[in-house]
Structure formats: structure tokens, C-alpha cells
Design a protein around this nucleic acid. Structure first.
Length: 879
RNA sequence: GGGCCUGUAGCUCAGUUGGUUAGAGCGCCGCGUUUACACCGCGGAGGUCGCCGGUUCGAACCCGGCCGGGCCCA
């Protein structure tokens, strides 16, 4: 028997039979709904996806067999930067939202894969045209992804799938946003925030990544006012890694308990070079043992500056513009009229418009010349915040942005979010800590606006007053039934197109939403919140969110936020967190390291069941090694399922194995079924608790004992000498084999859907994947109180006989004239009842004597075993 | 610096509320074509449970410290 071709054959059959179709007439109690992670289509799927999606599929299959109507849609994440870049290069275009939609647009090129086109060569097109191209390009990716998932055997209902860039998804994102706005949860604020100068967009806390960044401490002198006698006071030294921000200094700050600076609190000092007078203040955020213990607060060098600025109510003196360069015009506070040094204007003329890097050099040179630099800069490694997709440290820039409240600035809401975390069942449980740490560490609301072109537009316009000033306080919003809209081409009610951008007219909000603002709504998108309330009521709140541990702070948390605000509930009851796939060097597998294996090739080489077995043998939340060896074991298991089943089914002859519990009378058969009943209970309990690994292990261990011992022990009896009229003993063995096979196939079905379905098709009707999950009670009834340990004891006795032959280096077919076994005291009596099977399997042709061993003795010892000459090889049977 | 996870056979991992001699599979060694399976079967060897201390009659497991690996947050 072979596994070859099973994937294609059964995938096609399941599709044709609609095996996994969701019955939307099911009630909420009957439904088990899964909020599947939509993979990013612009990337490629890798083994990590195969790994975690298999975990989800095992849950889906188990719940489906357990009688739940499983809602298991698949989505594609085609929204966001990766798709934007890919479309630019593929079609040679770029998005310019100021342009109108062109219904007859044809892209200048198709298929510029791989090489990036220069921005100057890209044809600017409207947002709507751009989104059209995104949808066009992602179609082929999505077809390929779907094909892979089908080959892997995911029991997804392909009639329910979604895309995050589709009109429906955009409408959901906009509607949810408008509702946040209406309830006061979404708001605009002009505030300092993290800003990526490369992408020129604001960045949210969840997108930050702290990285080591080389810098240098510069020891710089500030000058206190002359003392009463007029003599110059000793300079006050601070240490900074960002001397170019000297013109933005607004205060010097030391710890309130710091003895060294007590006498200076409340006084002022003048900044070197610029001569701006700034206060010396106390704040507990200053670190006494860092540098000189007193820090320069600038607007803004880092997030600590923002805290000081806010809490000490300091003035804003921003010098960095959105492109990461210093302002071109001389700031107002650096003019002589404002009290600055005469040299300040000249210095600014030199550094204005420069990058922070060049400005730093110029300022340091000037400090050195003026004698305000003490010593030379000391190199250091500092942690700087980066946008996770960027390669320049983030600056802090003041801008008008949209936020959604997430508890970062509201203790009551934070408590509610923490309570939601407690309510959510994490698998494994310790993953909740990551959620709690994140929510506890939030330092601001969720920044949802992005200064990008491609994405879901913020669905608002603003009126312009008669001077052309934007009236931000009263955004104009569309009706929900108009969604999705693109405010750059659609019009607000009551305005005409020629009023766009003119005084007394309107302007559109230029920003798009963060991709998480859409991704956080996957339950609403997949469940039909906006357009199919009947479906939504049957699937929401969902039962399960499966995902990776790395996006607890983003995807999981933001989804909880949206659901909490919109529905007053959790989005799902359970969160199953899969681990990473590590390569053999214990490093996370990633494309950049060149160690990614393509999933398609992997599945074709080893078989989907084998790869699924590998995935299933790793527990949730645990990182797993990428191990071909484990897949080979899975492959062996799947093949064994085919072969052992084929063998067992031969005993049924043409009529197949009758599953008639009443026929099971033999003690060994009953013991085997008693053991299987226990296995069924344990596997069921494990799967119910999201522990697929344990369920598989329990089932697999039993199955191998079933093959190696039980099948060997009963095959003679089951064969019954080929007689037409079968004995009760033979009937018992056959019925037990039928019951066991029927149960084992169903227990294995979630992990090995292809092999089990193949065997099922040989002798059963319908799909094993729609068969009911096995229960222990009927098996236990047949077992009639038998001790499951008997199978193990019999197996041990058989192993002892095999060992004799193995050590004598003779064939297992060698007959034994007479044998005496010392067996554990407790099992001697029970073993007598299976002596017939034991003799047959061990080929004991004469007496088989079972001697009870001493009290407490374990294991089987062979006292006597008289081996007969090995019989001649039987003639090769002709196939 | 704080938090979470982790360290058991050459490898990948189990090990339940602490309880006899710590398990499995792979790999390795030896043997064997037994009414399915050579993509097989049978048998065997292989471990100071990261280190140190403590609690206990008893510790892989509980407690403390140290060392190593991974992730998250400062």
C-alpha cells in the first residue's frame, strides 16, 4: 500500500462532496467558529504556516466529528505595505490619492516581478485604480495558496473566504471606525509621536522594535547665571547622544533626591551656542547614576522627553521636520529678539535643512570651537526605537493623528482590557502573561492613522471655512450604507466636486488606516457583521482564535479592543498559540537566513499526513525543530494504518468486518477493547483541552501495540483456518478487529485525514471526517470489565518467546517444542485464558507452561524453550 | 534591569498531586523475508535528569542561587 496520490484524490472528493461545508442553519450552540489568521499573500507560505495551520485544522476536525457545525473560513491579507510595494514593481505604478479614478486605465507593464522600478518611472494613479490592481494581482497568489491548503488537507470551507482589501473588508473597517468615532472612542489629536522618516508616516507602539544603535555621549556645558558678585558660575555638564537637538532644549532635569542639584532646582541656565534660557527642574524620571545625573530635555529626542514635556508643562520647540531634517527656517526662539545669542541665527543658517546626522557634526564642531564640549565624544551602544519595517531610528514629530482608545491612557479601560484577558482561555495558559504585560505597559492610545497611500482610507471629510482653514473639530462622515468610500474621490453629502479644496468647501482626510485597524476585525469580516447579521449571530463571538505568539500584542490585542468596544464581549472564547519553527541550529526559520523550505515540495516529498504528523507532535506554545525525521515517522505511521487495516479487513472476507459487539467473547479481545476505551477517553480529554500532542501520542502508542502484539496474537484465531463455518472464537476476534479499526481510524482522522479516509472508503460509507467522534462507553460495555493490562502481559509473554528466537538468531517462524515462562504473579491466571493465542503467535507446538513468579516480580522470564529446526521456507506465494 | 518560557539518551521529545530499576521514537549495533507492511519485523546497547545548596523517609519534579538557550518589555 502506498500514500501516493491520496492528497489530490481526497482533496477533490471532499470538495465535490462538500464535506466541510458550513451549515448556516445551525444555532450558535451547535456552531464551533474559528477566526483563522489570514496569511499575507504578497509573501509566500512557509513551513511555519503549515505547522500552525495544521494545529488549527486538527481542532476543526475534532470539533466537527464531535458534532459541532464548524465555521472555518480562510482569509487572505492583501492589505498593507507588502502588497503596495509588489503592485508598484509588478505594474510600474504608484498610488497618488490626489488623482481621480480612471475607468479606462491600463498599467504600463505587467509582470515586473523581482526587480524594483524607480519611483520616477512609475505612473501615478488614483487610489481606486491602485486597489483594483492589488485585487488583480492577489487573485493568482490566492489561488496558489488555496491549492496548497487543500493539498495539506485543511478542512476549510472554501465557500467562506475573504480578503482584507476587498470592498466588504474596507466597508467593515470604515464602519467600525465610524462607530468608534460616534461613541467618542476614536479621536484626533495633535501630539508628539513616533515617526518614521523613510516612510514618512506615524508609527504605533505595537510596531516599534528596540534595536542597538551606535552613538556617542557628548559632555556639553550649560551656563548658570552669574552669581551675585557677577563672577561667572561653574558650567553645568550634561551628557547627550543627540547634540544636534541642543536648539530644541527646553529644560535640564535631575532626580528630585539628587543632592548635587538641589541648589539649582528653580534656577535657569543658558544653552551653549544658542543662549536660550531654560529652567533646571526635578523629575523622578531622571537617572542619577547615568552620565552626570542631569539630562537635557529636548522636544523631542525620546519618549522620556515627551513625558517630561507633558508633565512639567514645558514649551514645544520642535526642530525636526517630517523628512528627518532640521527645519529650514530659523525657529522663533533662536532669534535675537527672543533673547538668543547673536550667533544662533548664523549657526542655524548652517544646520537648518540638514539631516540629523550632518547637523550633529556641525553642532559638535561648534561646541568644540566654543569650548562647550568637555572632552571628546565617547562611543556607546544605545537602544533606539525603529519601525519594524524601517532601517532608520524613529524621530518624534508632532502631527495630527487619529487614535482609538485601548486603555493606554485610561485606567478604567485598561482594567477592562485586563479583565478580558482573564476571561479569554489561552492555550497554553501562560501565554496570557504576554497579553497582560503588553496591556500593562501601554503608554498611549492606539494610533490608527498612517500617512501612506494604499490602505483603507479614513472615511471622513472636513469643511473649510471661508479662509480655507480646515475645521478638524467637525469631521463630515458618510452614511454606513455608502461604505466603502474613498474620500479622495467620493463626495460628502451636500457638496459638489468643484468645492473640493476651496474656501467654504471641503477636503478629505488624506490618511489611511493602520493595517491592524482592518485585521483587528477579521471576526466581523468573516462572520458577516455588516451585511449578514443572521450569519453573524450564529458564529460570533467565535470559539477559537489560533495565532502565533509574536502577534499577541498586535493582532490578538487589537481584535479584543475592537470587539470590546463594538460588542461588549470578547471576540472569541479561546486563543490557541502556536510556537515557532526552528531550524536545526535553534534559530527561527526565516527567509533572510535562506533556510526556508518550500511547503509544496515538502508535502509532495513526504506526504501531507506525514508533515501533519510532525506538526501535530509539537504542543501549542512550544517552539519546534524542523525535523524531517519526525515526518518520516509520520509517513511510516500513515502507511502502517493502510497496511494494518488492509490486513485486518482480509479476515472479513467479502462481507467485510462485521461490527457486532455481541460477538466479542474472548478475554484477549475484551482486554484490547478495554484498553481502546481508555485510549478513547484520554484522547478525547486531551483534544478537548487543546492538547493534540497528547491525543496523538496516546492513540499512536496503542496503535503500535495493537499491530505488534494484538494483531500477531489473534491473526491465527481470526483466520480460523479458513473454515466456512466460523467458531465463536474466530467471530470474536473478527468483531473485535472491526470495532478497533472503526475506532482507531476515527481517532487518527484529525491528524492523518488522507490515510484514514482512504481506509474508511474501503469498508464504510460516507467520510470518516463526518463520522461521529468515538466514545468509550460502548467499547467498555463490550469489554465487560476486562482488564486492559492483559494485552500488555500477553504482549510481554510473546516478546519473551520472540527474544529467545532473536538471540538464537533464528527465524520467527521457528517452532518451539515446549516452553516454560515465569510470569508476574498477578497476571498468571489471566494469561492462562489467552494461552491459545500465545501458542499460535509464538509457534509453540507442544506445551506452554506459565509459572507464577515470586510476589512483586515483573516481566516475563523464559525458563525453558526448546527450539525445533527452522522449517524450510514456504514457496513464494504468487500475487 | 524586569517578566515569561526552556535545559532529561548522539538527536527530537514525554515524564500526572514528589514514590520502586527515569521512558518513547529516530539514529546506532545484531538478527530475521513470520497469512498486511523492507516506506517491514524482532531483539539489544545507550542517561551524574545543566550546576550548587535546601526541604523531605524519599527530588527529574518543590524552594533558593548560579550557568546556558529563546522570546517580550524597559
Amino acid at each position: 500500500m502506498s500514500l501516493a496520490g491520496l492528497e489530490d484524490r481526497w482533496a477533490a472528493s471532499w470538495d465535490a462532496q462538500r464535506t466541510y461545508a458550513f451549515d448556516r442553519t445551525a444555532t450558535r450552540e451547535q456552531v464551533y467558529s474559528i477566526d483563522t489568521p489570514p496569511p499575507t499573500v504578497s509573501g509566500s507560505l512557509h513551513v511555519g504556516h503549515v505547522f500552525s495551520y495544521t494545529h488549527t485544522d486538527i481542532v476543526a476536525r475534532f470539533r466537527r466529528m464531535s458534532g459541532r457545525e464548524v465555521f472555518y473560513p480562510m482569509g487572505w491579507d492583501d492589505n498593507g505595505l507588502p502588497t503596495e510595494r509588489r503592485v508598484q514593481n509588478y505594474f510600474g505604478v504608484r498610488c497618488d490619492p490626489s488623482l481621480p479614478f480612471d475607468a479606462d486605465f491600463t498599467p504600463p507593464q505587467v509582470g515586473g516581478e523581482g526587480k524594483s522600478t524607480r519611483a520616477a518611472d512609475q505612473v501615478p494613479i488614483s487610489r481606486r485604480n491602485f486597489i483594483d490592481l492589488c485585487e488583480q494581482l492577489t487573485v493568482s497568489d490566492e489561488r496558489e495558496f488555496e491549492s496548497l491548503w487543500r493539498y495539506l488537507g485543511l478542512s476549510v470551507d472554501w465557500e467562506h473566504h475573504y480578503q482584507t482589501i476587498s470592498g466588504e473588508s474596507r466597508a467593515v473597517a470604515q464602519q467600525a471606525f465610524l462607530r468608534n468615532l460616534a461613541r467618542g472612542e476614536a479621536y484626533q489629536a495633535e501630539a508628539p509621536g513616533m515617526w518614521d522618516v523613510t516612510f514618512q508616516t506615524a508609527v504605533a507602539q505595537a510596531e516599534l522594535e528596540a534595536r542597538d544603535y551606535p552613538g556617542a555621549f557628548h559632555r556639553v556645558a550649560f551656563h548658570p547665571a552669574p552669581d551675585a558678585s557677577g563672577a561667572p558660575a561653574a558650567p553645568l555638564y550634561i551628557e547627550t547622544t543627540r547634540p544636534e537637538l541642543l536648539p530644541a532644549a527646553v529644560a535640564l532635569i535631575a532626580h528630585p533626591d539628587d543632592e548635587r542639584y538641589q541648589h539649582l532646582f528653580g534656577t535657569t541656565v543658558r544653552s551653549p551656542l544658542f543662549g536660550v534660557e531654560i529652567p533646571v527642574l526635578a523629575h523622578r524620571g531622571a537617572e542619577p547614576d547615568k552620565g552626570s545625573g542631569i539630562a537635557m530635555c529636548c522636544t523631542f529626542g525620546d519618549l522620556t522627553d515627551v513625558v517630561w514635556w507633558r508633565e512639567l508643562q514645558l514649551p514645544a520647540r520642535s526642530v525636526i521636520s517630517r523628512d528627518g531634517r532640521l527645519l529650514r527656517e530659523t525657529p522663533a526662539w533662536l532669534t535675537v529678539e527672543a533673547g538668543a545669542d547673536p550667533g544662533a541665527v548664523a549657526l542655524w543658517a548652517e544646520i537648518g535643512g540638514k539631516t540629523t546626522f550632518s547637523a550633529r557634526t556641525a553642532v559638535v564642531d561648534a561646541l568644540r570651537a566654543s569650548g562647550d564640549l568637555d572632552g571628546e565624544p565617547v562611543p556607546t551602544q544605545r537602544k533606539a526605537n525603529f519601525f519594524e519595517k524601517g532601517d532608520k531610528p524613529l524621530e518624534i514629530v508632532t502631527s495630527r493623528q487619529w487614535y482609538i482608545g485601548n486603555g493606554g491612557r485610561d485606567e478604567a479601560l485598561r482594567e477592562q482590557m485586563l479583565a478580558r484577558g482573564t476571561e479569554l482561555a489561552f492555550h497554553p495558559d501562560f501565554m496570557r502573561v504576554r497579553y497582560e504585560n503588553w496591556v500593562g505597559g501601554l503608554n498611549g492610545d492606539w494610533l490608527v492613522s498612517r500617512q501612506r497611500f494604499f490602505g483603507v482610507p479614513i472615511p471622513v471629510w472636513y469643511a473649510l471655512d471661508t479662509d480655507g482653514e480646515v475645521l478638524y473639530d467637525a469631521p463630515i462622515v458618510p452614511r454606513e450604507d455608502q461604505l466603502p468610500i474613498d474620500p479622495s474621490s467620493d463626495l460628502p453629502a451636500g457638496y459638489s466636486a468643484d468645492q473640493r479644496g476651496v474656501p467654504g468647501g471641503f477636503v478629505s482626510d488624506p490618511d489611511v488606516m493602520d493595517t491592524w485597524a482592518t485585521s483587528s476585525l477579521t471576526p466581523q469580516i468573516a462572520g458577516g457583521w455588516r451585511t449578514d447579521p443572521d450569519l453573524f449571530a450564529r458564529v460570533f463571538p467565535m470559539d477559537l482564535r489560533p495565532q502565533g505568539q509574536d502577534i499577541i500584542r498586535t493582532w490578538l490585542f487589537s481584535t479584543v479592543v475592537r470587539s470590546h468596544l463594538e460588542h461588549g464581549s470578547l471576540p472569541w472564547a479561546n486563543a490557541a498559540i502556536s510556537g515557532w519553527i526552528l531550524d536545526p541550529d535553534r534559530k527561527k526559520m526565516s527567509k533572510s537566513k535562506g533556510n526556508v523550505v518550500t511547503p509544496r515540495g515538502l508535502l509532495e516529498e513526504h506526504g501531507s499526513d506525514a508533515v501533519r504528523y510532525w506538526a501535530a507532535s509539537a504542543r501549542l506554545g512550544t517552539d519546534a525543530a524542523f525535523e524531517i525525521g519526525q515526518m518520516k515517522i509520520g509517513r511510516r505511521l500513515a502507511i502502517k494504518v493502510l497496511n494494518a487495516s488492509k490486513f485486518a479487513l482480509t479476515f472479513g472476507g467479502d462481507r467485510g468486518l462485521a461490527i457486532d459487539p455481541a460477538l466479542v467473547t474472548d478475554p484477549l479481545d475484551r482486554a484490547m477493547l478495554a484498553g481502546l476505551a481508555d485510549v478513547t477517553d484520554r484522547a478525547t480529554a486531551a483534544l478537548t483541552a487543546y492538547d493534540h500532542t497528547r491525543a496523538l501520542e496516546v492513540t499512536e502508542t496503542f496503535f503500535w501495540a495493537f499491530c505488534d502484539d494484538y494483531l500477531e496474537l489473534v491473526k491465527d484465531r481470526a483466520y480460523g483456518g479458513g473454515a466456512i463455518e466460523i467458531s465463536a472464537a474466530t467471530a470474536s476476534a473478527r468483531a473485535a478487529l472491526g470495532l478497533a479499526l472503526d475506532t482507531l481510524l476515527r481517532l487518527f482522522a484529525p491528524v492523518l485525514p488522507f490515510a484514514t479516509e482512504e481506509v474508511w472508503s474501503w469498508w464504510q460509507t460516507g467520510s470518516v471526517h463526518r463520522a461521529p467522534w468515538p466514545v468509550a462507553a460502548p467499547l467498555r460495555a463490550v469489554a465487560d470489565g476486562a482488564d486492559p493490562a492483559l494485552l500488555g502481559s500477553a504482549g510481554a509473554a510473546l516478546a519473551a518467546l520472540r527474544k529467545v528466537k532473536s538471540e538464537a538468531k533464528v527465524s520467527m517462524r521457528t517452532e518451539i517444542a515446549r516452553a516454560e515462562l515465569v510470569v508476574p504473579n498477578g497476571s498468571a491466571t489471566a494469561l492462562e485464558t489467552v494461552a491459545g493465542d500465545l501458542r499460535a503467535a509464538g509457534r509453540v507446538v507442544g506445551d506452554l507452561v506459565l509459572v507464577p513468579g515470586p510476589d512483586g516480580g515483573e516481566g516475563v522470564e523464559v525458563r525453558v524453550a526448546e527450539l525445533l529446526p527452522t522449517p524450510p521456507k514456504p514457496p513464494k506465494s504468487q500475487e
